[in-house]
Amino acid sequence: MTDITLEVNGTEKSLAVEPRRLLADVLRHEFGLSGVHIGCAHGACGCCTVHIDGVPKLSCLTFAVQCEGKAIATVESVGGPNAEHALQQAFKSEHGLQCGYCTPGFVMALIPFVEAMTSQRRMPEDDEIREAMSGNICRCTGYHGIVAAVRKAIGDQIAGGSNRS
């Protein structure tokens, strides 16, 4: 067992973990963050995407011991219990989700992209949006609503100043 200290969704916590424990499992079971979903456990579907020091990473390809001292954010921290982040709201209004299992991974993977486009005040082409989500698999929506949600989130934030993020 190895002692580590992580900052998870703004709260610091120390715990002892076996080195082989995947960050995804530790977030789910030690921190109770059920929004981290495991879709393949071999880095090929994007469901488990979280932010480590602000950068999207697959938590099934990361060992918790590697995250000593790092700040981790999961979907739970993004828009609160009412899912108020502009991208979450756009997923809802554009029907970017159905069963919801892949959704937190898409949201976490796409937030930096949406933020970058918003700060550049640039509406990307659909191809660029699709490339940005190419590491995430959705089996329900056919991606159509997710592409629309990204466009809407960027458009709304450029037009109306940013929602909370």
């Binding site: 950068v55 990473k57 993977a109 490339e131 940005a132």
Partner: peptide, 9 residues
């Protein structure tokens, strides 16, 4: 190479 998240890490 891979996808954005893969290229990033």
């Amino acid at each position: 190479i891979g996808h954005p998240t893969i290229r990033r890490h």
